[in-house]
Design a binder for these strands. Sequence first.
RNA 1: GCGGACAUGGCGGAAUUGGCAGACGCGCCGGACUUAGAAUCCGGUUCUUCGGAGUAGGGGUUCAAGUCCCCUUGUCCGCACCA
Length: 802
Amino acid sequence: MSTKYNYKEIEKKWRERWEKEPVNPTHTDKPKYYCLDMFPYPSGNGLHVGHWRGYVLSDVVSRYKILQGYEILHPMGWDAFGLPAENYAIKTGTHPSVATQESIANFKRQVNDIAAIYDWDREINTTDPAYYKWTQWIFVQMFKHGLAYEKEMPLNWCPNCKCVLANEEATNGVCERCGSQVTKKNLRQWMLKITHYAERLLNDLDKLDWPAKVKKMQSDWIGKSYGAEIDFPVDGTDKAIKVYTTRPDTLYGATFMVLAPEHSIVKEITTPEYKDAIDKYVFEASTKSNVSRMTDKEKTGVFTGAYGINPLNGAKTPIWVSDYVLADYGTGAIMCVPAHDDRDFEFAKKFDLPIIQVISKDGKEAEELNEAYTEPGIMINSGEFNGMPSEEAKAKVPDYMEEKGFGKKTINYKLRDWVFSRQRYWGEPIPLIHCEKCGIVPVPEEELPVILPNVESYKPTDTGESPLAAIDEWVNVKCPCCGGPAKRETNTMPQWAGSSWYFLRYCDNHNDKELASKEALKEWMPVDMYVGGIEHAVLHLLYARFYTKFLYDIGVVDFDEPFKKLFNQGMITKDGAKMSKNKGNVVSPDEMVDSYGCDALRMYELFIGPPELDSEWDDNGIDGVYRYLNKLWKFVDEYKDKIIDTTPELERARHKMIYEITNRLEALTLNTVVSGFMEFTNKLIAVSKEAGGVDMASLESLTILLSPFAPHIAEEIWEILGHKESVFRSVWPSYDESKLKEDTVNIAVQLNGRVKANITVAADADKDTVLAAAKEALGNKLTGTIVKEIYVPGRICNIVAK
RNA sequence: GCGGACAUGGCGGAAUUGGCAGACGCGCCGGACUUAGAAUCCGGUUCUUCGGAGUAGGGGUUCAAGUCCCCUUGUCCGCACCA
């Protein structure tokens, strides 16, 4: 009597069973494995099949580790501060926390459909005061250690979000969140000294098992460069301008200088004759948006009327102002060597400035340079350095300068400090108090958390003030230091604050004495496997590393990198585009689960393509894995009563299957694991048919191997095979190398590199035997004299004849 | 502009890392079952003038190249005047 594969019944049954008997027993003395998903922002739109991909992947890894004898930490939580809930509040008046709670409930229901083994007792929510108490506590520690400071400067301002953005949030001159063009606004904001950690953030990348691409992006973002700072005295004054250059070897070729429009010395050195032109240019530069400053490649600039003196040869170099020099990199001033720098060359051509060649490929000066020569070469026109290779001069010139006292070697980074305050409502209040007498005082730790108060209007203002500034009774407090009248800081933290340390909280989420106990952190951290999208390559992942290093330095944690291994799953696209409600190309997992079952959807999410690449959703694709599960079910149903002793054939097939599946799983090529299941199940069915039955070991091994992927059907089959305990109480099967070998092997016979025949020989046949058989197989195709004979055991043999 | 990744049937993709290209699946074609359809099962499916040709195009290294090297083209990603 055969039964049909009823996924609805099976999945319901096992979901209930797992409720009662968790698959992952906790508080054991097993070795620990921490497998973490990037926690989601619980949006009102819910999940689509793209979200599933990473969650299924991490769940497969977690279940695999359980079968390997680990106790795992596989938690889920909510990164719930953020603009959508706030914008919704502005529109409807609903408090963001209400909308957030609803979204979380919906998300959680959908996440549960994945059947991942999340431990909901460890659930966290960044908007929960019990959680953000510690987000604020970390900030207070940073403040106390001088890593948080206030600064007024031109900042990235998103006119749509009406708040400032960190550098990392404004790449390409557009807002990372909403895509609006970012403008500059001069504002006083809270900064975090992430640059203090630049060197360690760069060096420690070496320790990490992360995709090369992400490491490269972080290292480029940090942007370390070696160079020199050189003082150019301003002619006729006692002032000097410090420039930064990575090419000190070209110092003799410096024919002019350029200052950033924002450079403070501009006003001081500009001569009366040029004052109007400079004022106008500086003003225009200040109103120019990031974008136009970036896209207007045509060089602009104005002469200040002043000259600098090249400290090496005393040459007079006119000082210009141009917006192609950035105020916040290096010293905001450069020496210009048009002969050897593309930008300087362009500027010199446009404003007819002299060009002096100081490096040449062959040691001879070119008649005329049509473009800058930026390669290394031989020094010319450079006094005592003439004839020296420029790479050598790069080191010698700074040495000489240091000796003479007008310059020194130095290092620069592109990384900027982190603009940390936001002028919005739905974020953690920055726990500081401004007192006229005592200055800025942190909220005492025992008074944390500073609860986000209710406001009448959530609307952001255009002034750069948070809506919290309007609540007098909240803003006005007593100074914790002197007891006098004081005001609260009204800015909130960026959304990244809560996610920069959440992985620590999962280890000990109910702790109200510290962010997590030392023991819990020691037990679980660092994260063994971190799964998430690539979009956080330089945002969250850099911030989290920074936080971890800081907490390490103050002794809160005893590791300085949070994530040992990182895996970036690709996107799932539909019609070639990322799924979104606007485009109307969202595929809902709810419907898929309903028509094919959770197991089939889990397997298809992996089968769809290499997990690290983007893959296009194919509505028919899931049919393939669904048919596979049906086939497997039918096979078990038919053969469960035809159990026989194992045969050499069955045994070899089983070991091969375990070997292949295990290796592919270790390599995380999960698409090939799924195809492997299909391949080996087909093989097993064929062999069983031949043998008139199947051995128990084969069925059991297959079931265990499959269980991380399709846990429900695996449990059901495991039970059918006579087991009382969950399949996850069993052990990942092992293979025996010696059992993998076939008795005979098929060898392709090539003549001059082309396959001409196939022979079957004993697996351990020696070269001569195989070659003799090969020649026989070639027969009269083999003519001429044999010049070479190659035999690769078990694969191929090639006879080269002339 | 600079840097990086990639390019394999109608489609998604395999290929033990230099060793029989196209595994596995989708789709399609044919057959069985059926009054019929759906579902299911079985067979076929790179092209071909049946000699061969073939992994974007061209060259090279090698007994042997999808895989290594050089050039070209195309697609995607990152950075955006960082001196």
